[in-house]
């Protein structure tokens, strides 16, 4: 009978120390990497959105200054001859109608073409990004129909079918926006931006943004009435 002696491993202090050192290194490296990733994502995100926030605030204040100048001029005219200048009123009325989607509008801008089957939230995010980039008027559609967006436009449907204010749209989808082509293009195409995300999530889609000197958007097709809201007294 062969007796097999079970060999108890002798404690090797070198190995134990190495094990402890490796553990410590592992812990430190992982901690640092986590910290680095967190720092990168936090600073990357906040620097980008900080810049966006400041740009937004500056633009909002500039728009307010423009409106103040206009109001001051009209007020001075009203005080001067106590008559309402009809031309000023008509200009203001038409400007509001253009903003509200009730006049056909044109101007420089971009066309976003989506060869894919977006979900409603993806279209919503694109519209949000265009507004963020200072788009002054937007329409969504396909080669047959373009639907102008108004303040209360809702985007519904499902993947591959998009409902804009009750109007059914199939692809290929186009979003046309009037505004600074350069700013809109840069906002949409920035690294890590919305288009990069869409292209990454849907590698089979083709999403292109084309700047244009002149884009024309139609009048909003539905009635805009108020059934529940009243003027605040």
């Amino acid at each position: 009978m062969v007796k097999v002696a079970l060999r108890r491993p002798r404690p090797n202090f070198g190995h134990v120390s190495l094990f402890l050192v490796a553990l410590l290194v592992g812990f430190l490296v992982v901690t640092q990497l986590r910290g680095q990733l967190a720092a990168e994502s936090a600073s990357g995100r906040s620097q980008l959105s900080d810049a966006r926030l400041l740009a937004d605030l500056i633009e909002a204040n500039n728009r307010l200054r423009t409106e103040i100048t206009k109001a001051e001029q009209e007020l001075a005219a009203l005080k001067g001859n106590s008559r309402v200048d009809v031309d000023t009123l008509v200009t203001e009325l038409n400007r509001l109608k253009a903003i509200n989607g009730l006049l056909e509008v044109s101007g420089p801008g971009v066309e976003v073409e989506i060869l894919g089957n977006p979900e409603p939230f993806e279209m919503l995010d694109l519209v949000n990004e265009l507004r963020n980039a200072g788009a002054e008027a937007i329409a969504i559609g396909n080669p047959q129909t373009m639907v102008r967006l108004v303040y209360r436009s809702g985007i519904g449907g499902g993947r591959g079918w998009i409902l804009v204010d009750g109007i059914l749209l199939s692809g290929p989808y186009y979003i046309r926006a009037i505004g600074s082509p350069d700013t809109i293009l840069k906002t949409l195409e920035r690294r890590g931006g919305l288009l990069a995300l869409l292209r990454y999530t849907h590698p089979d889609w083709v999403v292109t943004v084309t700047p244009a000197d002149r884009i024309t958007l139609p009048v909003y097709p539905n009635q805009l009435s108020f059934k529940y809201a009243r003027l605040m007294q």
Binding site: T66, R95, E104, G134
Partner: peptide, 9 residues
């Protein structure tokens, strides 16, 4: 305010 610098009607 509303931006209408690029908008023509």
């Amino acid at each position: 305010g509303f931006a209408t610098e690029h908008l023509r009607w």
